[in-house]
Design a protein around this nucleic acid. Structure first.
Lengths: 227, 227
DNA sequence: AACCTGTGTTAACGTGTGTTAACCGATTAG
DNA sequence: CTAATCGGTTAACACACGTTAACACAGGTT
């Protein structure tokens, strides 16, 4: 799952960069290592990574300046700065540019990984699993479409897509009613529960073409999607 | 022009607060001075200022806690913290809450004013000089053009370009309606919301050539551009 | 000045989505 | 068996959003 996460690392010290890269790769991240800000900028435009780890002091283009440029193109991508400096003013500058976290050298790999996971969970988790297969269907969650074999994609609504995502992520196991309700509706009162029932019906209809797929109710507990 | 800018100042030390208030007023800002966090909170709800200057250590409600509450209502209003502390950790805390800048006491008025102007410029006239790719389109924001592959560039209007820029900068994630409205229109009343709907329609039409690009509505929340 | 032209807002009407209600059958407790 | 409960299904509904066109207005042109 993590192998889908792509991190762009900009660090001019080759040895340190190597260590970070390898260390992150053992955690199943895909890492691109650039040795200066200019290279990182070019790579960012080509590859569109999920997260950036930028050294502040680099040749050609420093990390702050690089982050500033990146923010003109993308408001949300998480940025972590690495810096040898410790003055408050630098931290401030990093954050005003739009950095999300800040790590002072020397730091432990554990620290870096904790921060990366933090940021990815905050921003990235929801859109993580891009395109899923359910039996003979293809479920594109970001686009909210459900495609049977090679037919025309069927457009799902926001609620349908989210509910289906939950079911698929927990397929072949019982999903607790109130768990889904709390996650998607915010609370599990009577009316929301009935609303969910309606959506279960809708999903069943849209999944009817593949008879191997079923949304099974477990009375008093919840639902499970089998396929 | 500056006389339209309203700053909410929360500073419990009356003398210092007075100095700041008067100093900002000579720069043509409209300033409301509150002596504790509780008063500032009430005032914020009533007046909806353009920028906040918050002391961190205050009676009744400290600046961090106040900022946290304010961020639940408004993601974008710039917040500057004033603090006597100088530890990096406090700075980090301030920024993770959603502060935009940080000023360590004692500071000069000039410093404060530079930062205020910085933040206001960033919010008001986001200067951008980049060329973005959206699927098979090239979006030149400064020129306000949208080019499909090698065809003739399509001219966008000012509103179209700004709206598209926001969507692209936050692509693949849901962008809050009222956030866009507040940024581009200044407020999120009914009529502006309908106006935005019209522009969404216009953008969809202009992006129709690449079927992988979609502006998806999330009922009650906002839009996301997927590509 | 009168006339276009392009832009953004407002209006009017249509469509889609999510919630609620109503009615039903199935399951289970007593 | 009967009553209570849970879930299935359909339809009614309110309202968010889509779409188109009319409109107002600013800038430029003649």
């Amino acid at each position: 799952m993590d192998k889908d996460i792509h991190i762009l690392l900009a660090e001019d010290e080759p040895a340190l960069g190597m260590i970070i890269k390898e260390s992150l790769e053992t955690r199943n991240f895909k890492v691109t290592h650039c040795l200066d800000g200019q290279a990182a900028w070019e790579n960012f435009q080509k590859q569109e990574p999920h997260l950036l780890v930028l050294d502040v002091m680099m040749p050609k283009k420093d990390g702050f300046s690089l982050a500033k440029d990146i923010r003109t193109m993308n408001d949300s991508i998480p940025i972590i700065f690495l810096t040898a400096k410790s003055q408050t003013q630098d931290v401030v500058e990093g954050f005003t540019i739009g950095g999300n976290d800040y790590l002072k050298k020397p730091f432990s790999m554990e620290e870096l990984i904790v921060r990366i996971n933090n940021l990815l969970n905050r921003v990235n988790l929801q859109k993580n699993s891009e395109i899923l297969k359910i039996g003979q269907f293809t479920f594109d969650f970001p686009k909210q479409t459900l495609t049977f074999q090679n037919e025309e994609p069927l457009q799902l609504t926001h609620r349908e897509a989210h509910l289906l995502l939950h079911l698929v992520k927990n397929k072949n196991q019982v999903l607790d009613r109130s768990l889904i309700l709390n996650k998607l509706w915010g609370n599990d009162d009577f009316f929301n529960a009935r609303s969910m029932d309606v959506f279960i019906t809708k999903l069943r209809k849209k999944l009817i073409q593949d008879s191997n797929i079923q949304i099974i109710n477990v009375r008093g507990y919840g639902y499970k999607l089998v396929c």
